[in-house]
């Protein structure tokens, strides 16, 4: 995936070595095909946000921050709060990412992350409704991408999940059509912890968590997000290449196994397990 304008050119001798390694079930970095790079999660670092998380997978690094505001519901969902997910691929993150309107890759990225959180029903939006049709809470989750070395999909997904799961918001009391803010701070109404797993196909080998060089050489990409009941809640296939039916099924199994591992790790890191 190219976030910026110029595709990354990988050296021919690296391509050859990567093919050699993959055919023996290994990766150039020394990782196994289904190994993630080290995942680091730090929460609560932005005191001015209701919730925040800095997540790195290998050298890829992002920060997510949660803000909660009062808003009006959409006419077709008068009894539901709002969830707005926004991702900025900052120019500090890569030589290729320049200021200005987001590239189509950056927009795809933001939308896939949004879907993972929205469709898993991670947040019970009905519980964010204060006065049906009039007043609801709007949860903004903004992601700033700081450093890119592949697999932004999962890094951002984990940052959003960790920031939302640890957010504390003001409790509101509703009486006689009046909304009153209290002093009490409460967590967001969290139902589950969605976790995405991104896989890449290079030749006929499936790997998880591709780094930048592997992304530059991958034929096809598949991201699958699952919730804690092993339901698959969002998916996106990318790149010009395809997958066989068998590979899709293999990817589904991998997404559930690695998804559970990473969910356990994330919950441990943020003190939920």
């Amino acid at each position: 995936m190219a976030i910026g304008k110029k595709p990354i050119v990988v050296e021919q001798i690296r391509k050859t070595r990567m093919a050699e390694f993959l055919s023996k079930g290994r990766r150039l970095s020394g990782r196994g095909l289904l190994d993630y790079r080290p995942i680091k999660i730090e929460t609560g670092l932005i005191e001015k946000a209701s919730g925040s998380a800095k997540v790195s997978i290998g050298n890829t690094q992002v920060i997510a921050g949660v803000k909660v505001e009062m808003g009006t519901p959409f006419p077709d969902t008068p009894d539901q709060g709002l969830l707005i997910v926004n991702t900025e691929v900052l120019p500090i993150s890569s030589r290729n990412a320049e200021p200005g309107p987001p590239s189509e890759d950056a927009i795809e990225l933001a939308r896939v992350v949004d879907r993972g959180i929205r469709e898993s029903k991670m947040i019970d939006l009905k519980k964010l409704c204060l006065l049906p049709g009039k007043k609801v809470l709007a949860v903004f989750i903004d992601v700033s991408v700081l450093d890119i070395d592949g697999n932004l999909f999962d890094t951002i997904s984990y940052a959003c999940t960790a920031a939302l799961a640890t957010a504390k918001i003001r409790k509101y009391d509703v009486a006689n059509e009046e909304v009153k803010a209290t002093e009490e701070m409460v967590p967001l109404p969290i139902r589950t912890t969605p976790i995405s797993v991104t896989m890449a196909r290079i030749e006929d080998v499936l790997i998880v968590d591709p780094d930048l060089e592997e992304e530059a050489l991958m034929d096809a990409r598949l991201t699958l997000a699952s919730d804690h009941d092993d339901n698959i809640c969002a998916g996106q296939k990318g790149c010009p290449g395809g997958f066989t039916v068998e590979q899709i099924m293999q990817a589904r199994d991998t997404a559930l196994v690695k998804g559970k591992e990473n969910r356990d790790l994330l919950k441990r890191e943020i003190g939920l397990a």
Binding site: I46, K48, G65, E69, D142
Partner: peptide, 16 residues
């Protein structure tokens, strides 16, 4: 030079 604030950097969310 570009000075930019992340939306969550201030008390009330800032438009990016």
């Amino acid at each position: 030079c570009r000075y930019h604030m992340s939306p969550f950097s201030v008390d009330t969310r800032k438009n990016p």
